[in-house]
């Protein structure tokens, strides 16, 4: 069996071959850093979207015509799908910013008659399998002056997230 050596290794402080062209590395590195920073700043300008609630969207007129990201609970009764032209229309209800139980938050939002509602219009989109009653929709698009939100991107929460349900007690059990 090998013997353990606990002593620490002596470290040589000798440093060989200091480069005379070191400035080239700094200049090259600096230029590269500038290019990357420029790319990130330009990309951020092009891709930045405020992620807001339906209430915030509807109460702040400055968001009209601006590309934003919103989330809401889908009211399944309102889904109208034109399969021939790939157009989907539906309504989403405002959800609170924070919640513990997603399924409950979605259920409460859809069934709350006082919750703000927003009509959504999506074009050139096959109806996603997850677009169902009480699903959470995350949409990117713009609110028109007619009060309809025209979405260019539609994201729906995966059903594996709905794990909060438990077997309900049946009578007589």
């Amino acid at each position: 069996m090998a013997e353990i050596t606990w002593e620490k290794r002596q470290v040589s402080s000798e440093r060989r071959g200091v480069s005379p062209d070191r400035w080239k590395f700094f200049v090259g590195g600096g230029l590269m850093l500038l290019a990357v920073v420029y790319l990130i700043v330009a990309g951020t300008g092009a891709g930045a979207r405020y992620f807001i609630t339906i209430d915030e969207l509807l109460t702040n007129p400055e968001y009209v015509g601006q590309t934003v990201r919103i989330t809401g609970a889908v009211d399944g009764d309102t889904i109208v799908y034109d399969a021939q032209n790939l157009v989907i229309d539906f309504t989403i209800a405002n959800m609170p910013d924070a919640f513990d139980d997603l399924a409950l938050a979605l259920h409460n939002a859809v069934n709350d008659p006082t919750a703000s509602r927003l009509s959504v219009h999506v074009e050139n989109q096959v109806k996603p399998d997850l677009l169902q009653h009480e699903a959470q929709a995350i949409l990117t698009g713009t609110l028109g002056t007619d009060g309809v939100f025209r979405a260019t991107e539609l994201l729906l929460k995966c059903p594996s997230r709905y794990e909060e349900s438990v077997p309900a007690q049946a009578e007589g059990v």
């Binding site: 990309g43 951020t44 092009a46 891709g47 979207r49 992620f51 990201r69 990117t140």
Partner: peptide
């Protein structure tokens, strides 16, 4: 990292807003 996590976290902490970056950001950068 900035496009996926940095931007939402920093904007939430310092701008009191949630700013996310869409696919345009990644397609450009």
């Amino acid at each position: 990292f900035w496009g996926s996590f940095g931007s939402p976290i920093v904007s939430e902490l310092f701008l009191n807003a949630n700013i996310t970056l869409g696919t345009e950001y990644f397609q450009l950068v």
